[in-house]
């Protein structure tokens, strides 16, 4: 079973190479290679997670190592879906290295067993953790599309038309993919937060406890809610939407890691 972890990292890295070469040479087979390597990596990764879940009877989000691995898995999964649906090929240059990086970090994080497992094994917890992770992965892709959008918009506005102009797709496509990622992310985050509230009620007897993680999750949710609302009503799109998607993801990252490092709370356990 141990072989699957380095194998997954290797496949993600090879996929990264495939997408990097695609970016430079724009050959269709390079993009296909990147996609299939990532898909194979994702399947490998899924094997690890299924095996871990069935052997311990717990969702593998018990420590930082497992959490990071789960994040990378969510990212690859969401990317594969969005790529399949929207064909934004260059986005792989963002997703594949990110998944590889998270996996490499996970590999260096020691595997710690937590003593108290009782609160972390619950139906509601699964319905809380998985959607939140998938949602955050979708936000990561929205951020990636946003960055690519800003690069392409800059090259069109400045009329420089260099490397970026030729290799990135149209603004419309970048914007549409970013928007789709936002909608997917927001839906999943909403599900994750609601189930989190229900879980809090069953575990601690209260829906909301002003835990820092809860507060920041609320802020994240609000940012994306505003962005989507404005987009639908007055058409916040293009540059503004891209910038907000990037800011939103910064807040996601802070909520995920920053809050756990800076504040005490009942979400801190898994970052140990």
């Amino acid at each position: 079973m141990e072989i699957f972890f380095p194998l997954t990292i290797l496949l993600y890295m090879m996929s990264t190479a495939g997408y990097a070469f695609y970016l430079f040479w724009q050959k269709e087979y390079l993009h296909k290679a990147g996609y299939f390597l990532l898909l194979t990596g994702f399947i490998c990764h899924s094997v690890i997670l299924v095996f871990s879940t069935t052997s311990t009877g717990l969702l593998p989000v018990q420590n930082l190592h497992e959490m990071l691995s789960m994040m990378a898995w969510a990212l690859s999964g969401i990317f594969l879906i969005i790529q399949y649906k929207y064909q934004l090929k260059v986005l792989g240059i963002f997703a594949a290295p990110l998944a590889s990086l998270v996996m490499v970090i996970a590999a260096f994080v020691p595997w710690v067993m937590l003593e108290d497992k009782s609160t972390l094994n619950n139906f509601w917890l699964i319905i809380h953790v998985i959607p939140v992770l998938l949602g955050d992965a979708a936000f990561a892709l929205a951020c990636g599309s946003g960055i690519l959008y800003l690069m392409q918009e800059r090259s069109i506005k400045s009329k420089s038309r260099g490397f970026v102009f030729k290799r990135l797709p149209s603004l419309e496509m970048l914007d549409a993919t970013g928007y789709a990622s936002l909608v997917i992310g927001f839906t999943l985050l909403t599900i994750g937060l609601i189930s989190g509230l229900v879980y809090a009620k069953t575990a601690w007897g209260r829906f909301w406890t002003w835990d820092p993680k809860e507060v920041w999750s609320g802020i994240t949710w609000l940012i994306y809610a505003v962005l989507l609302h404005e987009r639908i009503t007055v058409g916040w799109r293009g540059k503004r939407s891209a910038i907000l998607a990037i800011i939103g993801f910064m807040v996601v990252l802070f909520t995920f890691f920053g809050v756990s490092l800076l504040f005490e709370g009942h979400h801190g356990a898994f970052l140990k």
Partner: peptide, 9 residues
């Protein structure tokens, strides 16, 4: 060509 980079289709 430019229009296609902006609008795609």
């Amino acid at each position: 060509e430019l229009a296609r980079k902006i609008f795609g289709d």
